Simulated scan of single mutants.
Amino acid sequence: MNDTARIPDSRSVRDGDGAAAAAPSRERADAGPTRSRPRSQQWAAWGFLTPVVIYLGVFYAYPLYRNLDLSLRDYTVRSFVDGNAAFTGSANYRAVLDDPTFLPALLHTVVFTAASLLLQYGIGLALAVFFTQHFRLAATLRAVFLVPWLLPLIVSASTWSWMLNSDSGLVNAVLHAIGIGPVNWLTSPSWSLASVVIANIWIGIPFNLVVLYSGLQGIPASLYEAAALDGANAWQRFRHVTFPLLRPVSAITLLLGLVYTLKVFDIIWIMTRGGPVNSSTTLATWSYRLGFGNALPAFGRGAAVGNLLVLIALGFGLVYIRVQRKQQTS
């Protein structure tokens, strides 16, 4: 028998041992970067998150905490300066709920918000569908409709105050020209709330137009062509194609509009100051008047009204999140 067949080649042994020895070393060399890479990515993630966390803490969390603290203490001008306000618990909330202004202010807030949302969304959707029909000057007209959104609110509110003036307003001049008597838009308890609603609708239409028009651009044209081939008319195409596919965009548009409208203060304050006789007072204007609009401010009760507004907005936000989850799972 050839003995050479039983003797292992020393070179192969060395090569094998070298490969075996080199394999762990390569594994260790490869393992080092894989352990350090996630750590570096974590530090980078924290680096990007830190400014956001600081911003939210300084401009959101701390003001909410201070507002909650204000609502739970008996703050006066003196105690607000020296910080020695007595803790009163829920006394400010009870005082607000028992105040005769609360229910009218809540009702005005509901009417103001609901009317503004429905008409802003309805008119904005109609204009968005109209502008999807490509025609000359469409871009120019869309830019013109954005003007109310671009103007400062104080300018818009002042303009509407002039237009609705009982004596020299443009609206009453037009009504007089067609044989209708003057209307006391801003000084009559019957018309003051309607006046601020009209102004707020005019200001909010451009936002709804822009968002809904963007949503309409994402609907494939092939769906409309297929519906037309099936014999669907314009209303049927809108009802069965446009509106269902636009539902997610509509939901976020209405939610953002709701949050914005709930806290509208400057338009109402500039035009009517919540009057006359609290006929256009909302929770937002009442909160400001309690805290800053009186000679003896009630900081605690004003903060309590503000917190009630926050809870209402938070409640609608949670409802929206729950509806979205149901739609995603269904």
Rank of each mutant, 00 (worst) to 15 (best):
S10H: 04
V13S: 07
G16A: 12
D17Q: 09
A21K: 11
A21E: 13
A22D: 07
A22W: 08
W43C: 02
W43R: 10
W46H: 06
L49D: 00
T50N: 09
P51Y: 14
V52Q: 13
Y55N: 11
Y55Q: 10
L56R: 00
Y60M: 09
Y60C: 11
Y62S: 01
Y65N: 05
D69E: 14
L70T: 04
S71T: 04
L72A: 15
Y75D: 01
V77K: 13
F87T: 10
G89K: 10
R94H: 10
L97N: 01
T101H: 13
L103K: 01
V110K: 02
V111N: 00
F112T: 09
T113R: 08
L117K: 10
G122Y: 08
A128L: 06
V129S: 00
F130N: 06
F131S: 05
T132L: 04
T132M: 04
R136Q: 08
A138P: 00
R142G: 03
A143D: 03
A143L: 11
V144K: 10
A157Q: 09
S158A: 13
W162D: 07
L164N: 06
S166Q: 04
D167M: 13
S168M: 03
L175S: 04
I178G: 09
N184L: 15
W185F: 11
P189S: 12
P189T: 05
W191R: 05
A194L: 14
S195N: 07
V197G: 11
I198T: 02
I201R: 11
I203K: 14
V211S: 08
L212E: 05
G215T: 02
P220E: 03
Y224V: 03
Y224G: 01
W235C: 07
F238Q: 06
R239I: 00
T242R: 15
F243W: 15
P244F: 15
S250Y: 11
T253F: 10
L255T: 08
Y260E: 06
Y260I: 03
L262C: 07
K263G: 13
W269P: 13
M271Y: 07
Y288H: 14
R289K: 05
G291M: 02
G291T: 00
G293H: 04
A295F: 07
A295G: 10
L296N: 08
G300F: 06
G302M: 14
G302N: 03
L309D: 06
G317V: 01
G317P: 00
Y320W: 14
Q324W: 05
K326H: 12
T329S: 04
